[in-house]
């Protein structure tokens, strides 16, 4: 591993962010946090993360609005997105990202790490 994998967490729930941040940092990943879609988009453009973990239901800019802007950036569009959602939120909605996966909430820390590592492996990291 040449450098630390960089993970961006976009979620308005501070407690959940705290847990996910702690979980990922225990694996020595670099974790950046944004609390809404707008901030997330700015940080995604500025920090160029390897993976984005995104909550679908958020204030200011929700996951779908985020996706619309996100997909316009050719570099970002290729960055995997792990979309956090509860079952009832995601039903019947088409998947808005090129490389992505729905993660069903609630998510156990070990499952989060497993998913992130799976995607990092695909990226060759």
């Amino acid at each position: 591993m040449n450098r630390k994998p960089k993970i961006l967490i976009v979620d308005d729930d501070v407690d959940l962010v705290q847990v996910m941040k702690g979980t990922l940092e225990s694996k020595l990943f670099e974790v950046i946090v944004a609390h809404n879609g707008k901030e997330g988009l700015q940080k995604a453009k500025g920090e160029k993360p390897d993976i984005v973990i995104l909550d679908i239901m958020m204030p200011v800019m929700d996951g779908w609005a985020f996706a619309e802007q996100y997909n316009k950036d050719p570099l970002l569009a290729k960055t995997p997105v792990l979309a956090l959602t509860s079952f009832s939120e995601s039903l019947g909605q088409p998947f808005p990202f090129q490389v992505s996966e729905y993660l069903q909430k609630p998510l156990k820390p070990k499952d989060l790490i497993a998913k992130v590592e799976e995607h990092l492996k695909k990226l060759g990291m």
Binding site: D13, D15, L16, V19, M20, P106, K108, P109
Partner: peptide, 21 residues
């Protein structure tokens, strides 16, 4: 969303503790 969010957060926190972090 509003009913599930606090429960999801609570559960994640507890799982975090359970898994020894």
């Amino acid at each position: 969303h509003d009913l599930q969010s606090p429960l999801v957060a609570t559960q994640s926190v507890m799982s975090y503790i359970l898994e020894g972090y």
